[in-house]
Protein backbone atom coordinates (compact mmCIF):
# COMPACT_ATOMS: atom_id res chain seq x y z
CA UNK A 1 0.00 0.00 0.00
CA UNK A 2 1.28 3.45 -0.85
CA UNK A 3 -0.10 6.97 -0.76
CA UNK A 4 -0.75 8.82 -4.00
CA UNK A 5 1.39 11.90 -3.53
CA UNK A 6 4.02 13.14 -1.09
CA UNK A 7 5.64 16.55 -1.20
CA UNK A 8 9.04 17.03 0.38
CA UNK A 9 10.19 20.49 1.42
CA UNK A 10 13.55 20.85 -0.35
CA UNK A 11 16.46 22.69 1.21
CA UNK A 12 19.63 23.32 -0.72
CA UNK A 13 20.77 25.33 -3.71
CA UNK A 14 21.94 24.96 -7.28
CA UNK A 15 25.04 23.09 -6.07
CA UNK A 16 23.18 20.34 -4.20
CA UNK A 17 20.14 19.45 -2.13
CA UNK A 18 20.76 19.18 1.61
CA UNK A 19 21.55 15.67 2.80
CA UNK A 20 18.29 15.63 4.77
CA UNK A 21 16.29 16.48 1.64
CA UNK A 22 17.99 13.63 -0.22
CA UNK A 23 17.12 11.26 2.64
CA UNK A 24 13.48 12.37 2.69
CA UNK A 25 13.10 11.99 -1.07
CA UNK A 26 14.57 8.50 -0.90
CA UNK A 27 12.06 7.48 1.77
CA UNK A 28 9.16 9.24 0.06
CA UNK A 29 9.68 7.05 -3.03
CA UNK A 30 8.85 4.01 -0.86
CA UNK A 31 5.75 5.63 0.59
CA UNK A 32 4.02 7.21 -2.39
CA UNK A 33 3.43 6.76 -6.12
CA UNK A 34 4.30 10.35 -6.91
CA UNK A 35 6.95 12.42 -5.19
CA UNK A 36 7.43 16.15 -5.66
CA UNK A 37 9.34 18.89 -3.88
CA UNK A 38 8.43 22.35 -2.68
CA UNK A 39 11.20 24.91 -3.03
CA UNK A 40 11.45 28.46 -1.76
CA UNK A 41 13.30 29.95 -4.71
CA UNK A 42 13.88 29.43 -8.42
CA UNK A 43 12.82 25.87 -9.26
CA UNK A 44 15.27 25.59 -12.15
CA UNK A 45 18.11 25.78 -9.63
CA UNK A 46 17.30 22.37 -8.19
CA UNK A 47 15.23 20.58 -10.85
CA UNK A 48 18.13 18.29 -11.87
CA UNK A 49 19.01 17.38 -8.28
CA UNK A 50 15.36 16.82 -7.32
CA UNK A 51 14.84 14.57 -10.35
CA UNK A 52 17.94 12.60 -9.51
CA UNK A 53 16.32 11.68 -6.18
CA UNK A 54 12.98 10.77 -7.70
CA UNK A 55 10.93 13.98 -7.63
CA UNK A 56 8.71 14.42 -10.67
CA UNK A 57 7.91 18.07 -10.05
CA UNK A 58 9.47 21.06 -8.32
CA UNK A 59 6.77 23.39 -7.00
CA UNK A 60 8.65 26.65 -6.63
CA UNK A 61 7.53 29.82 -4.90
CA UNK A 62 10.12 31.98 -6.68
CA UNK A 63 12.15 34.63 -4.89
CA UNK A 64 10.60 35.46 -1.51
CA UNK A 65 12.56 38.71 -1.25
CA UNK A 66 14.08 37.99 2.14
CA UNK A 67 10.86 36.93 3.88
CA UNK A 68 11.33 34.17 6.44
CA UNK A 69 10.04 31.12 4.59
CA UNK A 70 7.62 29.70 7.20
CA UNK A 71 4.60 31.87 6.48
CA UNK A 72 4.76 32.16 2.66
CA UNK A 73 5.68 28.54 1.95
CA UNK A 74 2.99 27.18 4.28
CA UNK A 75 0.40 29.54 2.79
CA UNK A 76 1.34 28.45 -0.73
CA UNK A 77 1.06 24.74 0.12
CA UNK A 78 -2.25 25.33 1.94
CA UNK A 79 -3.62 27.19 -1.10
CA UNK A 80 -2.74 24.22 -3.32
CA UNK A 81 -4.45 21.86 -0.87
CA UNK A 82 -7.59 23.99 -0.89
CA UNK A 83 -7.88 23.86 -4.67
CA UNK A 84 -7.47 20.08 -4.61
CA UNK A 85 -3.95 20.11 -6.05
CA UNK A 86 -2.18 19.29 -2.80
CA UNK A 87 -0.45 16.13 -1.58
CA UNK A 88 -1.51 13.44 0.88
CA UNK A 89 1.50 14.14 3.07
CA UNK A 90 4.26 16.70 3.45
CA UNK A 91 7.69 15.67 4.76
CA UNK A 92 10.04 18.29 6.17
CA UNK A 93 13.43 17.96 7.80
CA UNK A 94 13.85 19.12 11.39
CA UNK A 95 15.61 22.39 10.59
CA UNK A 96 14.92 26.00 11.50
CA UNK A 97 12.88 26.55 8.33
CA UNK A 98 11.37 23.05 8.24
CA UNK A 99 9.86 23.53 11.67
CA UNK A 100 8.52 26.97 10.80
CA UNK A 101 6.79 25.72 7.67
CA UNK A 102 5.38 22.59 9.36
CA UNK A 103 3.99 24.68 12.22
CA UNK A 104 2.40 27.32 10.00
CA UNK A 105 1.02 24.66 7.65
CA UNK A 106 -0.58 22.79 10.55
CA UNK A 107 -2.45 25.94 11.56
CA UNK A 108 -3.46 26.76 7.98
CA UNK A 109 -4.85 23.24 7.42
CA UNK A 110 -5.90 22.59 11.02
CA UNK A 111 -3.85 19.39 10.79
CA UNK A 112 -1.61 17.81 13.41
CA UNK A 113 2.17 17.46 12.99
CA UNK A 114 4.10 14.37 14.02
CA UNK A 115 7.56 15.62 15.03
CA UNK A 116 10.98 14.07 15.61
CA UNK A 117 10.18 11.22 13.27
CA UNK A 118 12.97 8.69 12.57
CA UNK A 119 10.92 6.16 10.59
CA UNK A 120 7.68 6.20 8.60
CA UNK A 121 5.32 3.41 7.49
CA UNK A 122 2.12 3.39 5.50
CA UNK A 123 -0.89 2.00 7.39
CA UNK A 124 -3.96 1.82 5.15
CA UNK A 125 -4.45 5.33 3.89
CA UNK A 126 -2.65 6.78 6.89
CA UNK A 127 0.96 7.07 8.01
CA UNK A 128 2.65 5.95 11.22
CA UNK A 129 5.73 7.79 12.48
CA UNK A 130 8.33 6.43 14.89
CA UNK A 131 9.78 8.91 17.39
CA UNK A 132 12.47 8.31 20.01
CA UNK A 133 11.58 9.40 23.54
CA UNK A 134 13.53 9.46 26.81
CA UNK A 135 16.79 10.01 24.98
CA UNK A 136 16.14 7.16 22.60
CA UNK A 137 15.60 4.47 25.20
CA UNK A 138 12.06 3.97 23.92
CA UNK A 139 10.41 4.46 20.55
CA UNK A 140 6.79 5.45 20.21
CA UNK A 141 4.75 4.92 17.09
CA UNK A 142 2.17 7.57 16.36
CA UNK A 143 -0.57 7.32 13.75
CA UNK A 144 -2.51 10.08 12.04
CA UNK A 145 -6.17 9.58 12.92
CA UNK A 146 -7.70 12.50 11.05
CA UNK A 147 -8.33 12.79 7.33
CA UNK A 148 -6.45 15.42 5.44
CA UNK A 149 -2.82 16.24 4.84
CA UNK A 150 -0.30 14.48 7.07
CA UNK A 151 2.62 16.65 8.15
CA UNK A 152 5.80 14.99 9.39
CA UNK A 153 8.95 16.62 10.74
CA UNK A 154 11.75 14.11 10.23
CA UNK A 155 15.05 14.11 12.07
CA UNK A 156 18.19 14.27 9.90
CA UNK A 157 20.03 11.01 9.16
CA UNK A 158 16.96 8.87 9.67
CA UNK A 159 17.30 7.27 6.22
CA UNK A 160 20.08 6.40 3.79
CA UNK A 161 19.97 8.71 0.79
CA UNK A 162 19.99 6.91 -2.56
CA UNK A 163 19.56 8.55 -5.98
CA UNK A 164 16.87 7.08 -8.23
CA UNK A 165 18.63 8.31 -11.33
CA UNK A 166 15.49 10.08 -12.51
CA UNK A 167 15.37 12.80 -15.16
CA UNK A 168 15.24 16.47 -14.30
CA UNK A 169 11.98 17.35 -12.53
CA UNK A 170 9.33 19.58 -14.13
CA UNK A 171 9.14 23.03 -12.62
CA UNK A 172 5.78 24.56 -11.73
CA UNK A 173 4.90 27.80 -9.98
CA UNK A 174 3.50 27.52 -6.46
CA UNK A 175 1.66 30.80 -5.92
CA UNK A 176 2.03 32.55 -2.58
CA UNK A 177 -1.27 34.16 -1.56
CA UNK A 178 -1.54 37.56 0.14
CA UNK A 179 -0.11 37.12 3.64
CA UNK A 180 -1.21 40.30 5.39
CA UNK A 181 0.86 41.32 8.40
CA UNK A 182 1.69 37.71 9.38
CA UNK A 183 4.35 37.60 6.68
CA UNK A 184 6.14 40.70 7.95
CA UNK A 185 9.39 39.13 9.18
CA UNK A 186 12.11 39.97 6.65
CA UNK A 187 15.82 39.25 6.59
CA UNK A 188 17.80 42.46 6.18
CA UNK A 189 21.29 41.04 6.54
CA UNK A 190 22.95 37.64 6.59
CA UNK A 191 26.04 36.82 8.62
CA UNK A 192 28.03 33.67 7.96
CA UNK A 193 30.42 32.56 10.68
CA UNK A 194 33.75 31.45 9.31
CA UNK A 195 34.31 27.83 10.09
CA UNK A 196 37.15 25.62 9.06
CA UNK A 197 37.01 21.92 8.45
CA UNK A 198 33.96 19.75 7.86
CA UNK A 199 30.47 20.62 9.07
CA UNK A 200 29.47 19.09 12.38
CA UNK A 201 26.58 17.05 11.01
CA UNK A 202 28.53 15.83 7.99
CA UNK A 203 31.98 15.14 9.50
CA UNK A 204 33.35 11.60 9.51
CA UNK A 205 34.82 12.27 12.95
CA UNK A 206 33.45 14.41 15.78
CA UNK A 207 35.14 15.46 19.00
CA UNK A 208 32.63 16.86 21.49
CA UNK A 209 33.26 18.52 24.82
CA UNK A 210 31.12 18.70 27.94
CA UNK A 211 31.01 20.05 31.45
CA UNK A 212 33.96 17.84 32.44
CA UNK A 213 36.20 20.35 30.64
CA UNK A 214 35.71 22.53 33.70
CA UNK A 215 36.08 25.90 32.01
CA UNK A 216 35.36 27.56 28.67
CA UNK A 217 39.06 27.89 27.82
CA UNK A 218 39.50 24.11 27.87
CA UNK A 219 37.19 23.80 24.87
CA UNK A 220 40.19 24.86 22.79
CA UNK A 221 41.74 21.41 23.16
CA UNK A 222 38.55 19.85 21.83
CA UNK A 223 38.88 22.06 18.76
CA UNK A 224 42.56 21.24 18.43
CA UNK A 225 41.88 17.51 18.59
CA UNK A 226 39.06 17.82 16.05
CA UNK A 227 41.32 19.78 13.70
CA UNK A 228 44.15 17.29 14.13
CA UNK A 229 41.85 14.40 13.25
CA UNK A 230 40.25 16.36 10.36
CA UNK A 231 36.92 16.24 12.14
CA UNK A 232 34.43 18.71 13.57
CA UNK A 233 34.07 19.98 17.14
CA UNK A 234 30.76 19.58 18.96
CA UNK A 235 29.41 20.18 22.44
CA UNK A 236 26.94 18.95 25.01
CA UNK A 237 23.95 21.06 25.92
CA UNK A 238 25.44 21.89 29.33
CA UNK A 239 28.30 23.95 27.93
CA UNK A 240 26.14 25.56 25.25
CA UNK A 241 23.69 26.67 27.95
CA UNK A 242 26.67 27.95 29.93
CA UNK A 243 27.60 30.11 26.95
CA UNK A 244 31.02 28.52 26.28
CA UNK A 245 30.21 27.58 22.70
CA UNK A 246 27.47 28.60 20.27
CA UNK A 247 24.23 26.68 19.90
CA UNK A 248 25.26 25.60 16.40
CA UNK A 249 27.82 23.26 18.04
CA UNK A 250 25.26 21.44 20.16
CA UNK A 251 24.81 17.70 19.68
CA UNK A 252 21.71 16.08 21.10
CA UNK A 253 17.94 15.98 21.19
CA UNK A 254 18.03 19.76 21.07
CA UNK A 255 20.70 20.47 18.51
CA UNK A 256 22.31 18.39 15.82
CA UNK A 257 22.08 14.68 15.13
CA UNK A 258 25.47 13.26 14.20
CA UNK A 259 26.39 9.82 12.94
CA UNK A 260 30.12 10.00 12.27
CA UNK A 261 32.40 7.04 11.87
CA UNK A 262 34.13 8.06 15.13
CA UNK A 263 32.68 10.12 17.98
CA UNK A 264 34.96 11.19 20.81
CA UNK A 265 33.09 12.43 23.91
CA UNK A 266 35.42 14.46 26.13
CA UNK A 267 34.11 15.20 29.59
CA UNK A 268 30.53 14.43 28.61
CA UNK A 269 28.51 12.45 31.14
CA UNK A 270 25.97 11.28 28.58
CA UNK A 271 22.60 12.64 29.65
CA UNK A 272 19.78 11.08 27.65
CA UNK A 273 19.34 14.43 25.89
CA UNK A 274 22.88 14.07 24.51
CA UNK A 275 22.81 10.34 23.73
CA UNK A 276 19.86 10.66 21.36
CA UNK A 277 21.95 12.91 19.13
CA UNK A 278 25.05 10.74 18.85
CA UNK A 279 24.46 7.11 19.71
CA UNK A 280 24.04 6.25 16.04
CA UNK A 281 27.78 6.93 15.62
CA UNK A 282 29.69 3.94 14.30
CA UNK A 283 32.45 4.04 16.94
CA UNK A 284 32.31 5.90 20.22
CA UNK A 285 35.24 6.80 22.46
CA UNK A 286 34.43 8.37 25.83
CA UNK A 287 36.76 10.06 28.29
CA UNK A 288 35.25 10.90 31.66
CA UNK A 289 36.39 11.04 35.27
CA UNK A 290 33.25 9.43 36.63
CA UNK A 291 33.34 5.64 36.07
CA UNK A 292 29.56 5.57 36.48
CA UNK A 293 28.91 8.14 33.72
CA UNK A 294 26.13 6.89 31.40
CA UNK A 295 28.27 7.71 28.34
CA UNK A 296 30.32 4.56 29.08
CA UNK A 297 27.17 2.52 28.48
CA UNK A 298 27.36 3.32 24.76
CA UNK A 299 31.14 3.65 24.34
CA UNK A 300 33.20 1.14 22.40
CA UNK A 301 36.27 2.43 24.19
CA UNK A 302 35.79 4.06 27.58
CA UNK A 303 38.64 5.87 29.33
CA UNK A 304 38.03 6.59 33.00
CA UNK A 305 40.30 9.57 33.42
CA UNK A 306 40.78 13.31 33.33
CA UNK A 307 40.33 14.93 29.91
CA UNK A 308 42.95 17.53 30.93
CA UNK A 309 45.53 14.76 31.14
CA UNK A 310 44.44 12.40 28.38
CA UNK A 311 43.79 14.88 25.56
CA UNK A 312 47.08 16.85 25.75
CA UNK A 313 49.00 13.56 25.67
CA UNK A 314 46.86 12.36 22.79
CA UNK A 315 47.53 15.59 20.88
CA UNK A 316 51.22 15.26 21.53
CA UNK A 317 51.30 11.65 20.36
CA UNK A 318 49.34 12.50 17.21
CA UNK A 319 51.71 15.41 16.58
CA UNK A 320 54.69 13.07 16.81
CA UNK A 321 53.31 10.64 14.22
Amino acid sequence: MTLDTIWVYAEGDSDALSSTTQELLTKARDLADTVAVVYAGDGDDISDHAGEYGAETVYATGDLEGALVGVPVAAAIAAAVETGDGPDAVLLGTSYDGRDIAARLSVALDATVISNVVDIEVDGDSLVGTEPIFGGTSDIKTKFTADGVKILLVRPKSFEAEPSGGDSADVEDLDVPDLGSSGGATVTNRHAEESEGPKLDEAALVVAGGRGLGQAESYEMVEQLAAKLKGAAGASRAIVDAGWVPYSSQVGQTGKVVKPSVYIAAGISGATQHLVGMKGSKNIIAINKDPEAPIFGVADLGIVGDVHKVIPKLLEALEAR
Binding site: K141, F144, T145, A146, F296, G297, K309
Partner: peptide
Protein backbone atom coordinates in the same frame (compact mmCIF):
# COMPACT_ATOMS: atom_id res chain seq x y z
CA UNK B 1 -8.78 17.00 19.42
CA UNK B 2 -5.30 15.89 18.52
CA UNK B 3 -5.56 14.07 15.17
CA UNK B 4 -2.91 11.56 16.19
CA UNK B 5 -2.70 8.61 18.54
CA UNK B 6 0.12 6.60 20.01
CA UNK B 7 -0.28 3.05 18.70
CA UNK B 8 2.70 1.44 20.41
CA UNK B 9 5.64 2.02 22.72
CA UNK B 10 8.67 -0.22 22.34
CA UNK B 11 12.16 -0.33 23.81
CA UNK B 12 14.72 1.03 21.37
CA UNK B 13 17.60 -1.24 20.33
CA UNK B 14 20.31 -1.13 22.99
CA UNK B 15 23.87 -0.28 22.02
CA UNK B 16 26.39 -2.61 23.66
CA UNK B 17 29.21 -1.04 25.64
CA UNK B 18 32.77 -2.09 24.77
CA UNK B 19 36.00 -1.94 26.72
CA UNK B 20 36.35 0.42 29.69
CA UNK B 21 39.78 1.13 31.16
CA UNK B 22 41.20 3.30 33.92
CA UNK B 23 43.71 5.92 32.71
Amino acid sequence: GSGQEVVSVVDAPVREAGEKIED
